[in-house]
Design a protein around this nucleic acid. Structure first.
Length: 424
RNA sequence: GGAGAGGUGGCAGAGUGGUUGAAUGCGCUGGUUUCGAAAACCAGUGGGCGUGUAAGCGUCUCGGGAGUUCGAAUCUCCCCCUCUCCGCCA
């Protein structure tokens, strides 16, 4: 969400930001709405002032018992009411018209973000790890999993339809082990506080992170109007919604391992096989609530925390700086981590770390008070996967597969799997 | 799910239609006093928006929204949340 006052004073910069995302200039139309809004507000306040003055005079007259004077005054202001209500309606409509427009605009890309139209314009920043070689062509995770009898898509379809999976035995345990392993890393090594949040949230929370109103079709909604979280970013970031936190307590660092639910509307036909794109998956999320001066550093730190998981599991990956064409709605800058998948012979996204600046904070009214200052300021919010557990399972299976179809358990994970060294 | 009671400033807690943005207490900030501190005393102490170079002025805000009224913390309706009892339940 933008500050209309900022748009007013920075029309060129604002339109330039939109342009980088391939959106037409909007400042002129917004300024018109804003001028109208302020005119109506000023007018409304004039009438309110009159109303308050006369109401007090009537009150004063009645207090003195001067009923006659009160009646006279009341007759005088009789006409004011209709006008007041009309102005009130118009002003309300002007405000919501402006808010509707503002709420639908994506965040302004940070300086240095490559301008582009899609993922082809992303910039590879670095790679890590050796891409493994295999004596025979490596299998995809679902081939391995189904052959082991520990990954069942058919029965999942029986229960829930496409884009679900049933894991069993050692693979079910590995999924659980991965979540615990990641949480332990973030909480004991990187100062994140573990949170067990609701996975059903109300509309306000979904608005706060920027998923509503524009992306309702990507989300599941219950019959009594809860929204299933598509990521723990939603509950974790909204933790500070509507609050004014102490500057000294920043940054807040939250992590959670939750199921995530995505409708995957518009993804029909993509990644239909296997666990890459599911309606339900587990993810360990990292969220930071930071001082604006610290958010750039915090962004790098968070990305390093996500990378550390891949390094500990010895999974090769690369880091991308997303172009303006591939960035999410609320982000001003995003790093994607892509893990190497031998079965697919390609890198696939396993984490996305975004600095949203004050964009979400405005939507959810999350502020802090700088030391010794009167004025509050919006916090910066950051989120990143650390990591997507389902895709990490996929990556482990494909990278650690053996010629006989068994899977070696990564050393770092063995303590979390009762010492198990090999599956199958 | 049924019945009931509530939501007031950082906290506690008055206020049930009239100059109430809100008594009182606590907390906090500044000042006086003190060698210093405590105590005491004095003053200040929410957030948003509009207008203005600024000081200021205005307006909104007593869980959220809509309404009644010349006037709403106070009355009506809807929603949210908390608590108590019953039922159900992991």
């Amino acid at each position: 969400m933008y500050d209309i006052k900022w748009i007013r004073d920075n029309t060129e910069a604002f339109d330039e930001g939109l342009g980088k995302r391939g959106i037409e200039p909007a400042s002129a139309a917004l300024v018109v709405l804003d001028v109208r809004r302020r005119e109506l507000q000023t007018e409304l306040q004039d009438v309110q002032k009159q109303r308050n003055t006369s109401a007090k005079a009537i009150g004063g007259a009645k207090a003195k018992g001067d009923e006659e004077a009160a009646q006279t005054l009341m007759a005088e202001v009789a006409g004011l009411k209709a006008r007041y209500q009309q102005l009130e309606d118009e002003e309300r409509e002007a405000v919501s018209a402006l808010d509707r427009e503002l709420a639908a605009l994506p965040n302004r890309p940070a300086d240095g973000v490559p301008v582009g139209t899609d993922e082809a314009d992303n910039v590879e920043l670095r790679t890590w790890g050796e891409i493994p070689t295999f004596s025979a062509p490596p299998k995809q995770h679902f081939e391995l999993g189904e052959a082991l009898g520990l990954m069942d898509f058919e029965r999942a379809a029986k229960l829930s339809g496409a884009r679900f999976v049933v894991l069993s035995g050692a693979l079910a345990r590995m999924e659980r082990a991965l979540g615990t392993f990641m949480l332990d890393m973030h909480t004991t090594e990187s100062d994140y506080t573990e949170i067990a949040p609701p996975v059903l949230v109300r509309e306000e929370a979904a608005f706060g992170t920027g998923n509503l109103p524009k992306f309702a079709e990507d989300l599941f909604r219950t019959t009594d109007d809860f929204w299933l979280i598509p990521t723990a970013e939603m509950p974790l970031t909204n933790l500070v919604g509507g609050e004014i936190v102490d500057a000294a307590s920043l940054p807040y660092r939250f992590t959670a391992c939750t199921p995530c639910f995505r409708a995957e509307a518009g993804s029909a036909g993509r990644d239909t096989r296997g666990m890459i794109r599911q309606h339900q998956f587990t993810k360990v999320e990292l969220v930071s609530i930071a001082h604006p001066d610290q958010s750039e550093d915090e962004h790098d730190r968070m990305t390093a925390c996500a990378e550390a998981v891949l390094q500990r599991l010895e999974l090769p990956y690369r880091v991308l700086l997303l172009s303006t064409g591939d960035m999410g709605f609320s982000a001003r800058k995003t790093y994607d981590l892509e893990v190497w998948l031998p079965g697919q012979d390609t890198y696939r996204e396993i984490s996305s770390c975004s600095n949203c600046g004050d964009f979400q904070a405005r939507r959810m009214n999350a502020r802090f008070r700088p030391d010794g200052e009167r004025q509050t300021q919006f916090v910066h919010t950051l989120n990143g996967s650390g990591l997507a557990v389902g895709r990490t399972l996929v990556a482990v299976m494909e990278n650690y597969q053996n010629a006989d179809g068994s899977i070696t358990v990564p050393t770092a994970l063995r303590p979390y799997m009762g010492g198990l060294e090999r599956i199958g």
